[in-house]
Design a protein around this nucleic acid. Structure first.
Lengths: 224, 224
DNA sequence: CTCCGGCAGATTGTCAACAATTTCGTCAGC
DNA sequence: GCTGACGAAATTGTTGACAATCTGCCGGAG
């Protein structure tokens, strides 16, 4: 998956496309929290008209990713440590119920796919590859949410994850976090394969909660 | 609580205000699902400039309340029966965790306030006043979410509730629904007062789930 | 040296005019 | 009566110009 790029010869990007372009940069940290989003810069980089860029800003503010101030334009909204805590609380609730629904609804293939991904995650642990683990971990969670067959929740989680995207990766550099997170995954998988929806939900909630605890320990690096 | 009104003598409304104005009309059903939102009509009714109205549309589309189509403008997004199911699933997760967090965090005053509201709800049951019950019920849930001290979740729930706002009221005209919903409330309150966060969460999840079941029974009236 | 006021450039907010497209009534032809 | 082409009206999309505000620089007063 690459950045949306708008090369010269093609049509001008729409507001939705510009919003996606900005969203991805925010996720990746190219646009840091608090950074002002200058209209002309984005116009230059995307080839979109000013109108479309402003349209994208509105949309992103509706999503809660940027905030605008009179005559100061749009800037990337930065999440406080308390807001991160709130986001994690929401994730606990939503990913938890997804684990339960996945257990009830997932096909054998979907479970097998999850297990294959888990094998790769296991390899990352033995090789101590936190970066790769972070990427595959995202896929793993996305696959599980996908299998819960609830687009409303899937979209909510996608939005909630944007402000904490970088933190998710950072946490895996913390000692033993890889091992512990992986153990959580195995507990979740065991419950799913046993058809124990409640157990899967409880295990997932614990897993997400552990993620936040780790984050809190390394949070000084990111917050005041 | 009245509609945001923009009388002649005052300043022109901002995009945020226009969005709020439209949002409230969607909630109340003045703007029905599928209905097109004509720019000039809204300009006439709000006194906002065309620019601000379009700004509001963008924002509302970001929130998922409105969908826009090329050269056909904005229209109120209509939720399918399956999307309503998904929304309820999200509500079960989020309101459930709020009940648990409320139990842990709420002050004595907040609990007392919830009980006072509950007394009024009880009165509505004996008097069989579904309309009033519906309004107070919203307040009751809002108060509980408020006490959970999680603005992220509060905002998510507010957005999720918009498309089902009318359905929430309709369900209370169903026979015995008032009585059953009220019994659920008492169960939740009992758990809260006992400091039983898990019990409160379970009771809330059952309560919201029951709401959807009732809805499913009367859904033929609203959906195909 | 520091502080303050003001000026120039940069950046965003607003609007009105025009272009593109859809919508809907009308009417000829069958 | 029905169908389909046609065109006017309605509606939305886009652009560019201008207004309002902020930001940073510079020079003078103390």
């Amino acid at each position: 998956m690459t950045d949306p790029v708008f090369t010269g010869g093609e049509r001008a990007p729409t507001g939705v496309e510009v919003a996606a372009w900005i969203r991805q940069r925010i996720r990746r940290g190219s646009f840091a929290p608090g950074q002002r989003l200058i209209e002309v810069d984005i116009i230059r980089q995307t080839g979109a008209s000013r109108f479309k860029v402003r349209e994208a800003f509105q949309r992103l503010e509706g999503e809660g990713l940027v905030e605008t101030e009179e005559f100061r334009g749009a800037s990337v909204r930065s999440a406080s440590i308390d807001e991160v805590r709130q986001i994690y609380r929401a994730r606990i609730a939503l990913e938890g119920i997804c684990a339960a629904d996945f257990t009830r609804k997932a096909s054998a293939e979907q479970i097998a796919k999850l297990e294959r991904l888990q094998d790769e995650l296991d390899a990352c642990v033995t090789e101590n590859a936190p970066e790769r683990f972070g990427r595959l971990n995202l896929e793993w969670h996305a696959l599980l949410v996908e299998g819960a067959e609830n687009d409303v929740i899937r979209q909510l989680l996608e939005r909630l994850n944007v402000p904490i995207h970088r933190l998710l990766f950072e946490s895996f550099y913390s000692p033993n976090r890889l091992k512990h997170a992986n153990a959580d995954h195995h507990r979740i998988l065991r419950a799913i394969k046993a058809g124990d929806a409640d157990g899967a939900e409880a295990a997932m909630r614990a897993h997400v909660g552990n993620g936040f605890s780790t984050l809190s320990n390394i949070s000084d690096e990111f917050f005041g």
